[in-house]
Design a protein around this nucleic acid. Structure first.
Lengths: 332, 332
DNA sequence: CGCCGGCCATGCGCGCCCTGCAGGGCAGCC
DNA sequence: GGCTGCCCTGCAGGGCGCGCATGGCCGGCG
């Protein structure tokens, strides 16, 4: 029991340092870890102060580990690997070795994008875990999580909002900003954010009354009206109407990567947005639920969800491990 | 690069868990780690929530690790050991393998007790490190630290107080409360705190004008006067006067364990106290300075220094690694 | 069988620390 | 020589971990 007792020893900082070494740049590491360069700089500085040894040489073109930094990095990687094993061993030994399948529910748009990616991360980190995915609306998912039928629900606070329930734990994942979908080659198709007024008078297609209401409210706020003249049964139907030039449409930003090739997505200025949350039952959470939540936060950030920039009542910005996916690198 | 990315992962919490397992009790672990039982309880609960698995069975007579907890403990110990190796490797590689001797300075009373113990801890954790100890008064030590001659100074804010200097980093270690030394068998000798008024009219011995001033001020605050009639050249001389029944004396609490057997120390109610600080140069700190500071904080707590209970302007209560030696276990 | 003592959990406030933001300095590069 | 990219740092805000106090629970003992 030597126990060097060397101070805080937050492994998150160690992981940051390893990333910095791998990328050779504080800024790059910050971007990859969804922090600001400032935070990474301070973390490394704090580590150096704690160890009493410079770990990186500051270069104008980036940083390079010192010999001490290189030695530390090797052991730090081993430490991180062992820590992962520790977490894994605890979780596997959790329910007597037989982990029950992880029951995940998500709204259709989220089930189509970030949820599978996050579960993949869990499988990579935890080995083979049986799981199931149930697409449903937020309200239904909430009820099933509260009842304990679902281990994790990925929901939005869209029109009706999420109910308050002491039985469920809620964690904010990010803000899903709606984007406009236009046919390829449309005159307004471009990279820049578009004011909704530029689309006044266009014919809109919708497949969902909630989405249509969101569109109307947003347009009204800008002083224009949006005529929803075409109805579709589902997302493919809606996109077909767009691709054939009959209408334009509003879709959740998370689906941007899942669109067909003959349409393009254009962001809006001050877009309508829905908060995305992961909910878990407070009673008997699944051993891997916390892990999945972390992966969800990471995937949400990488998948383009905004970090709660909403100025009114910014909800809980997620714990420090994956801190709300800090607004890109500040250099952006 | 798996990177389970499982949340905060503060190794301090892991160490707490290992200690809890070893002692089989949250309260006992709290006492050993100088935390409150509350903090340990929350740390373990947080760890369980993070892992999604119960780690200990709460028993009325203590706690016992679950199978998952036992599995986790094994890997956690390995992780802690590897982390220690990482820190050590970085420090050893620090100055190109040749670490310069650690120059420590301390006031005589502190040099006699907590400093050697703390350095012993450093040697155990870091292997053979050459070091030197310079006893001197706080002001001189401060100057030498500022100049870079000393790597670590252990000083008090006694009469003149510590100067402000941007070149030195200051860390609060604890409050050294003065105690009264009486001959063994003295009618007032007992465990309980003694009001200074009970000693009004006694003859006091002092070896140091600063200490005498402290005594007079404390007595005056209680409305009595302390006659310092006997002077001694040093601490042994002062204690000799006490042991032979000629006088009573005030000594720093840290020296309690170093007194001769024929005198006893009795605490005072609302005793005069001196803040104890570790100071280090901001420029080029010694690689092991931070480690020594942590050990100093631990030894200060174990050596009986009070954790800044001073109600007026509680100075910085030391970082979270060894958090100011939280006021004993609350059960005390 | 009832009282008691020890142990752990939890609501409440406070304070630290980490973070994001904005500005500055410095070194390559065209 | 100006510019650009990278890193450092003062400032302010907020999360959260801690200490404190209280409550519930169980086992032991008279």
């Amino acid at each position: 029991m030597a126990g060097a007792h060397t101070g805080a020893m937050d492994l998150v900082v160690w992981r940051t340092f390893v990333t910095v070494c791998r990328l050779g740049s504080l800024s790059a590491a910050a971007a990859e870890l969804h922090h600001t360069q400032s935070a990474v700089s301070r973390q490394i500085a704090g580590l150096e102060r704690q160890l009493g040894v410079p770990l990186v040489e500051r270069h104008a073109r980036g940083v390079r580990p010192t010999p001490a930094g290189e030695a530390f990095r090797r052991h730090a990687q081993a430490t991180l690997a062992e820590a992962d094993r520790a977490v894994r061993a605890a979780r596997e030994a959790g329910d007597g070795g037989a982990v029950r399948p992880l029951a995940v529910g998500a709204t259709p748009s989220l089930a189509a994008q970030i949820v599978p990616a996050a579960v993949r991360g869990v499988l990579e980190a935890a080995g083979p875990v049986r799981w199931s995915l149930l697409p449903a609306l937020s309200g239904q998912l909430h009820a099933r999580v509260a009842a304990g039928d679902l281990d994790v629900g990925v929901v939005t606070d869209a029109p009706p909002g999420l109910p308050q329930d002491a039985r469920v734990e809620r964690r904010f994942l990010g803000l899903d900003e709606m984007v406009v979908v236009l046919p390829v080659g449309h005159p307004l198709a471009g990279p820049g954010p578009l004011p909704i007024a530029a689309l006044a008078g266009r014919t809109w297609a919708e497949d969902n009354e909630g989405s249509a209401a969101l569109l109307r409210r947003h347009a009204a706020r800008a002083g224009v009206t949006a005529r929803v003249d075409l109805a579709a049964a589902d997302l493919p139907g809606k996109l077909a109407l767009v691709a054939t030039g009959h209408a334009v449409a509003l879709v959740p930003g998370v689906l941007r990567a899942a669109l067909r090739a003959d349409v393009t997505a254009v962001p809006l200025v001050d877009p309508p947005s829905r908060g995305v949350y992961a909910i878990t039952p407070r009673r008997e959470p699944h051993p891997y639920a916390a892990l999945l939540l972390d992966r969800l936060a990471a995937c949400a950030a990488e998948g383009g969800l905004a970090p709660a920039a909403g100025r009114p009542a910014g909800p809980l910005p997620a714990p420090r491990a994956a801190p709300a996916a800090g607004a890109r690198a500040q250099t952006a």
